[in-house]
């Protein structure tokens, strides 16, 4: 029971991260399309932002790990 609730929690945090990283990726691609010469800078910024969003999601996942067992 706890395991399935934990799975739900993990799933919810993944939804948030998915939306966030999707936004970041989309905007980054837009930015690169508008200014291809800034691609490398945008990529770095994108990866950092994605990592931060992903960090938030991973906190959720880890908390749901804590619920396991």
């Amino acid at each position: 029971m706890i395991g399935s609730i934990a799975a739900l929690g993990a799933g919810l945090s993944v939804i948030g991260a998915g939306i966030g990283i999707g936004q970041i990726g989309g905007k980054a691609v837009e930015g690169i399309a508008r200014q291809p010469e800034a691609a490398s800078k945008i990529q770095t910024a994108m990866i950092i932002a994605a990592a931060l969003v992903e960090g938030a999601a991973l906190f959720g996942v880890v908390v749901s790990f804590l619920g396991l067992r």
Binding site: A51, L52, E54, G55, L58, F59, V61, V62
Partner: peptide
Amino acid sequence: FALMIRLFANITA
């Protein structure tokens, strides 16, 4: 802390 969790969770996942 986020660094720790990120690496751990990504590789474990």
